[in-house]
Design a binder for these strands. Structure first.
Length: 880
RNA sequence: GCGGGUGUGGCGGAAUGGUAGACGCGGCAGACUCAAAAUCUGUUUCCGCAAGGAGUGUCGGUUCGAGUCCGACCACCCGUACCA
């Protein structure tokens, strides 16, 4: 009898309807079961879901469905990170209103997400551009302002001198404005800041307790916060303007103070600003330094420039030793004091600078045995290397590294040269954006009262809808009426702040809002206390630093202002960072030799032997798709068409056209296939390459599972088989392995075990009852990945209720124990034989058996055995 | 530049310091078929007829034993504070 083919197109919507009708995924506060909060980083509503979304939300859904089956009351919400630049770009390019564009995108993406069958509680949905959301954010802004967590100061932005507008780093391409093409410069602007630096130490120390976060993320955050111990001291200056008779510097390498060659200040240092006023040469140089963008990458990789100011400083240990003071473009005003001393002998960047400007390079220490010869590069001793000080000062002796720094600080302090200072690299978080599509900053500028917070009763400060994008700049700034208001303090006419908030603010507390998404206050104490923290947070590793650090800070700030309990200051109990979905790129060249990219759906790709080949479908008559691979191979050999280049896999991006639309996959194969494929093959923390063959394989497997289910369904009642014990053992092992796989985020391994279990059932000759039991267990184990198919199997095989609600199966420990074990025998570390022994055989017995093994005897060829190592249950190694 | 990560068959990958290559794709062979598709079975790291040998990015080290630990390097990816 031909098995009935599984029809995903019919079955999937049917089951989603059943889940929706029974409100299976709606979370209730009064649910008596223990809570579990699983959250995937919410999407930016671009309008189309992509495979990265499918992978991210499928992972979360696997966890959510697994935890639900394990008896938890699962909170699994979804929302939209809806503010940001793309909406403004669309407005500029197509003249659409950012709000309307965003709302439409949200509707479109929701339509695309629904068919995937995620177990989401849609009653908690919100978008950050909802006034109900951003109004609460404004309210918290006012609370944080009152609590001293927010302040204003001047800071640098990218300035496009042609478009007269501020640019995001992303909009600066090779130092030029992306639209105007004009060289970008740095310009100072007064902006709002969160005092995240007040929490540097706490944010750093608390990382130690985030044991369910990836080590790499904790390490990256620790390095980002960048705690350092160093020496801060003042040089006496000679020839400096009034008020600059001392130059304060900070160094993490006071042990190299005797190797000083120059001092350098940032172009934004007050001294530089002072000199700029009277010296045109310095003014020109400082202007030169301000060219280019503000990004650290641009500054650090750019050419290192310096200008001798003519001012000198006196070495603190030798009043006769003067060092020139340079203005240098790589010194950041934000770090330390904005001034350094350079030790070229032991710092590569200083070495290059000194070489370029012909400065002295005195060594402080050399490798033991080496002499004080000119260096080819900065010398930093390796861990094991001993050094000898040739120009040190009391206190270092032969120490290097941290010990030398500590000793140097102690010595300097004892002789009155500066003091030890702990510094952090972490800078305060600038939240002002000179853009329309963001949360308005609720403050008012009054001519008499200055900066005045908006009254809470007037919140939300709503964005106006009638804005124009016909020219660059912030539409709020030029809106005819929006900014006009009255001062809450004195009642005089005043002007609203037209800057909006960084979208990172929106995403720094949405997880807390999900606990009470429609409340009239940012959070509700009871709900926040109950649902927080997020038990499992899942998202891309590209958020390892900024989003996750800002959220950790914001939770603390929310606690300080009474919006979160102290238990929620670390909002994410466990974090998982997933890899990207990649695809190979199909490229040809136009007449001018420029690359032209092709969508995977327009390309026919196959292997000839091991060699991958790709053709453009459009180059051929439509019947090309009907040809077999061998026919296609002949076609290629006949040079009837030109193959196109296959460029190795990269992150799916529109510009390279290496994108696969999840909707097409769902249309062809169904949601379960898409879900199964993104969970199989690659470990979730690593990138996964989308291949059409992989998707087809997933589809074929799910079809085989259904065919097996159908075959079992047709078995006569009361059939007796031989393999019931084996089936029970295979099931117990599958339950154990799949459970472990899901709990450990090793979904690819869980799926490999499901393949094995499927094949074990398929080969077995079991009784009707045993086979039905096995396939029901299989359906349950697959349910987190393939919820629709699992429901179909469950229903077909007489499962009680819904598969999604059935309690997670448990493995009988007695079935997991094997009686005998196969041990490999190595001779000098090379595997030469193996023996099968009872599980509990003593080592001495195993040793005798191993030495008596005929292959072992053959390989030993009478040589005396020096040593024999028996690792019980593992291996035997004979050393000769 | 700096910080972090990754590197294993033709491909995606598996492997508490203990049989390298589970599972899947692709390939090859076979069954079924007039034929093809679909499906099923077997096989598949490389060299070698075999015996055997080599093999986890490169070089070196620790160990009875290294993909795994240590040191140096190479390549690629992510982040780099206004992309989200």
């Amino acid at each position: 009898m031909r098995p009935e083919r599984y029809n995903a197109k019919e079955a999937e919507p049917k089951w989603r309807k059943v889940w929706a009708e029974r409100e299976l995924f709606r979370t209730r506060n009064e649910d008596p079961r223990p809570k579990y909060y699983v959250l995937e980083m919410f999407p930016y509503p671009s309008g189309r879901i992509h495979m990265g979304h499918v992978r991210n939300y499928t992972m979360g859904d696997v966890v959510a469905r697994f935890k639900a089956a394990c008896g938890f009351s699962v909170l699994h919400p979804m929302g939209w990170d809806a503010f940001g630049m793309p909406a403004e770009n669309a407005a500029m390019e197509r003249g659409v209103n950012p709000g309307i564009w965003t709302r439409q995108n949200i509707a479109d993406m929701k339509d695309q997400m629904k068919p995937l069958g995620f177990s989401l509680d849609w009653t908690r949905e919100f978008a950050t551009c909802d006034p109900e959301y951003y109004g609460q954010q404004q309210s918290m802004f006012l609370d944080m302002l009152a609590a001293g967590l927010i302040y204003r100061k001047a800071a640098m932005v990218n300035w496009d001198p042609v478009d007269m507008t501020v640019l995001a780093n992303e909009q600066v391409i090779d130092g030029k404005g992306w639209r105007s093409g004009a060289p970008v410069e740095r310009r100072e602007l007064t902006q709002w800041f969160f005092k995240i630096s007040d929490y540097s130490g706490e944010l750093l120390e608390a990382l130690d307790h985030l044991t369910n976060w990836p080590d790499k993320v904790r390490l990256m955050q620790a390095n980002w916060i960048g705690k350092s111990r160093g020496l801060q001291f003042a040089f006496a200056t000679r020839g400096a303007p009034d008020g600059f008779d001392r130059l304060e510097v900070y160094t993490t390498r006071p042990d190299t103070l005797m190797g000083a060659s120059f001092a350098a200040i940032s172009p934004d240092h007050p001294l530089a600003k002072q000199l700029e006023r009277h010296d045109p040469k310095i003014a020109a140089f400082v202007a030169e330094c301000r060219r280019g963008g503000t990004s650290a990458e641009a500054i650090e990789t750019g050419e290192k420039l310096g200008l001798d100011t003519g001012i000198t400083v006196v070495h603190p240990f030798d009043s006769a030793w003067e060092l020139p003071v340079y203005i240098a473009n790589f010194i950041l005003m934000d770090y330390g004091t904005g001034a350094i001393f350079g030790c070229p002998a032991h710092d590569q960047r200083d070495f290059e600078f000194a070489t370029k400007y012909g400065l002295a390079i005195p060594s402080v220490f050399v490798a033991e045995g080496a002499d004080d010869a000119p260096l080819a590069e900065a010398f930093a001793p390796m861990k094991s290397e001993r050094v000898c000080y040739i120009r040190g000062f009391a206190g270092e002796k032969v120490q290097t590294g941290d010990a030398a720094v500590t000793a140097a600080i102690a010595h300097c302090e004892s002789v009155g040269v500066g003091r030890g200072v702990t510094n952090y690299r972490l800078r305060d978080w600038g939240l002002s954006r000179q853009r329309y599509w963001g949360c308005p900053i609720p403050v008012i500028h009054c001519a008499t009262c200055g900066v005045v917070p908006e009254g809470k009763a007037n919140l939300p400060v709503r964005l106006p809808d009638d804005v124009t994008f016909d020219r660059p700049g912030n539409p709020l700034d030029r809106h005819p009426t929006w900014a006009a208001t009255t001062c809450p303090k004195c009642g005089a006419a005043a002007r609203r702040e037209t800057d909006t908030m960084d979208t990172f603010v929106d995403s720094s507390w949405y997880f807390a809002r999900f606990t009470a998404p429609h409340a009239a206050t940012p959070t509700l104490a009871e709900d926040a206390a109950y649902w927080m923290n997020v038990d499992q947070y899942i998202g891309g590793v590209e958020h390892a630093i900024l989003h996750l650090l800002y959220s950790r800070f914001f939770a603390r700030a929310m606690h300080k202002t009474g919006h979160l309990p102290v238990s929620a200051i670390e909002p994410f109990n466990a974090l998982f960072t997933q890899g990207m979905v990649t695809h190979e790129i199909y490229q040809s060249r136009d007449a001018a030799g420029r690359p032209v990219y092709h969508l995977p759906e327009d390309v026919l790709r196959f292997n000839i032997g091991h060699e991958p080949v790709a053709f453009l479908r459009a180059q051929h008559a439509t019947d090309l798709t009907e040809m077999t691979e061998s026919q296609l191979a002949e076609l290629r050999i006949a040079a009837a068409s030109t193959p196109i280049d296959i460029v190795p896999s990269a992150k799916m991006s529109k510009s390279k056209k290496n994108v696969v639309d999840p909707m097409n996959i769902i249309a062809s194969f169904g949601a379960d296939t898409a879900r199964w494929f993104v969970m199989s093959d690659s470990p979730p923390e690593r990138d996964v390459e989308w291949t059409s063959s992989g998707a087809e394989a997933a589809f074929k497997h799910l079809s085989r599972v259904w065919a097996l289910c159908d075959r079992i369904g047709q078995m006569p009642v009361g059939h007796v088989g031989r393999d019931d014990a084996d089936i029970a053992r295979a099931a117990a092992r599958a339950v154990k392995d799949v459970t472990q796989g899901i709990e450990g985020f090793a979904f690819n391994k869980a799926i490999a075990k499901l393949y094995e279990f499927t094949s074990a059932i398929s080969r077995a000759d079991g009784s009707t009852d045993a086979m039905k039991q096995a396939i029901r267990t299989l359906a349950q184990l697959m349910q987190p990945m393939t919820p629709h198919l699992s429901e179909s199997i469950w229903a077909y095989q007489g499962g009680v209720g819904l598969c999604a609600q059935a309690p997670w199966p448990k493995a009988d420990p007695a079935l997991l124990i094997d009686d005998s074990v196969t041990l490999p025998i190595q001779i000098n570390g090379k595997r030469r034989a193996e023996i099968s022994v009872p599980k509990d055989m003593p080592a001495s017995e195993i040793e005798k058996l191993a030495l008596a093994h005929e292959d072992v005897v053959k390989f030993l060829a009478g040589q005396p055995v020096k040593k024999i190592i028996v690792v019980p249950g593992r291996i035997i190694n004979v050393v000769v």
